[in-house]
Design a binder for these strands. Structure first.
Lengths: 302, 302
DNA sequence: GATTGTTCTTTTAGGCAACAATATACAATC
DNA sequence: GATTGTATATTGTTGCCTAAAAGAACAATC
């Protein structure tokens, strides 16, 4: 068998090791649900939560055990051995897979004008050393986010407008319309358990987790917060359009840095917003949201 | 060569015959631009307009000649022989390709609850007799429109909310927010040539073309009108989100019928809107748009 | 000078077969 | 009765190869 032979038919997966990828997802889930060391990791529950079958979950659990975060015993399944909120856990989660890396690379290259607006698949495959399928997945994802589109013939075209320098301002303007309007929709309501959950998470961050979080995580939580608020309108199109612009914002976030003080004020505003929403004063909440969105916080943290 | 041999490596194309497909696109373009019999069909112009190279355009022109809509002379290219607004032209355009048919079939099956929310590619390939690539294109398109998404493992999941019965109301509510807000954006302006073009098209429809148009065309023109208005805000995210919901509306439009009288009033409102926009009275225009969107016109014709 | 006709290269898509990843069904265990 | 362990069926991916579609460049023609 030649050296190159060993690369033939290499496993598909979404990265160097599908198991590790899933380990990260499981850990992230455990973290989000506030699980502690000693809690059981039930395969079917995880599978349902992550929308996969038990097979890949199992691989993830094995990888998690190998990394020292879980322990498995025969016929008893796996148990979390460490709190998923530690530094080590975070670095394990942060072990991004190939797909994510290529995504970031394309975004960076595009923003730095190192890519032409029109590209062919073969060109991209070479440039980022991706298989056809990997590239297809990547392009599909980008297409859904709206900053690339298939040309009728061969090739793809990047959206010029969506990634222009003005895009950030335009996203802000768009959000300033959408988000308050969502709150003002007739029938708007946010279930009290949702409010509680959001409040807890914000408080946990304010209490100390902020320092331990990566910029990506802070950004992620911010987006989820705002999307959850918008969801109260009971109209998926508001949430959808918000997600869409958030995915664009994330592109710019790759190059932004953290402003911890601004974030504190920002999170305080989130909590205030929750208070007002809880009492059903929606007009006031919408006004608050409008003001909140006007603050010129550094990009990665709304 | 065996019988099955002749099907091996059959041309890619987007349907039974790529040439006919392009003939349709060319005809539609000619129609949209109001071309008449005798006008020259310049290859490069068509190629640029349709984002393709001259090669496929050429095939389209030949197909058009074969269908009797154009005549080609050596070293002179092609000339339109009939007005593209006739019934025959329409049926030629309506000769939808396989891709479009599958799209419509999936939409219909889904709306009629004949499809489960979770589906696998293999299942869909069998059901709609599509090759893998054809199916991938179809799924990608649907994913961009936002009513299906890839599952982490095998298979795809249809969005339950986006196609629920309430979706139409929700789209309306969303548009009622987005469209007037777009007009109210600071710096909003609609170039006078854009206004002229829109006005001409609307007047042409009102003058008589309406009777000759299919429901799909009426719908299409309506969408383009509204998107063009939104474009005046100079913010692509407004236009983008509008396009997105319009593609959802189109799904429901497949089952709706025409209401010619309602449409007349509708188009009259469009013209009135253009008048107000032309004079820069944006607040008034936004109010007009709000009212316009509140009219309960039958679905396929906004 | 613009447009068409022609040629040549690049790029993409299809089919096939092997294989890896996933899902599912059922037995074993706590 | 719920959960884990295991076997089996199904699904999706990969690589290679060929053919066709698209793009680009250039000559010919009006």
């Amino acid at each position: 068998m030649s050296a190159s032979e060993s690369f033939r038919n290499r496993p598909a997966g979404n990265g160097p090791d599908r198991g590790e990828h899933l380990a990260g997802l499981i850990l992230a889930l455990a973290r989000r649900d506030g699980m502690k060391a000693g809690d059981r990791l039930i395969e079917q529950k995880l599978a349902d939560a992550l929308d996969v079958s038990r097979a890949p979950i199992r691989q993830g659990l094995k990888a998690l055990e190998a990394a020292g975060f879980a322990r498995g015993e025969p016929n008893r399944g796996f148990v979390l051995t460490r709190s998923p909120g530690t530094d080590a856990a975070r670095s394990a989660i942060a072990a991004v897979n190939r797909a994510e890396k290529s995504y970031a690379a394309v975004a960076a290259d595009l923003l730095a004008r190192r890519l032409p607006t029109d590209v062919t698949e073969a060109e991209l495959m070479r440039r980022y050393a991706l298989s056809r399928t990997e590239l297809q997945r990547l392009l599909d994802r980008i297409a859904v986010e709206g900053w690339i589109a298939r040309l009728p013939g061969y090739g793809w075209r990047f959206s010029e407008t969506v990634l222009s320098p003005e895009a950030q301002t335009q996203v802000a303007a768009f959000r300033a319309v959408i988000e308050p309007a969502a709150i003002l929709q007739p029938g708007y309501q946010l279930a009290s358990d949702v409010i509680d959950r959001l409040r807890q998470r914000q408080e946990r961050i304010l209490a100390g987790e902020l320092e331990k979080m990566t910029i990506g995580e802070v950004y992620q939580f911010g987006c989820e917060f705002h999307e959850e608020i918008a969801r109260g309108a009971g109209n998926p199109f508001f949430v959808e359009s918000l997600r869409r612009v958030n995915s664009i914002r994330r592109l710019f976030a790759y190059r932004s840095f953290a402003d911890r003080n601004g974030m504190r004020r920002h999170i305080a505003e989130h909590l205030r917003l929750l208070d007002v929403l809880e009492t059903g004063r929606y007009a006031e909440a919408a006004a608050l949201m409008t003001r909140h969105l006007q603050r010129p916080l550094s990009i990665g943290a709304a």
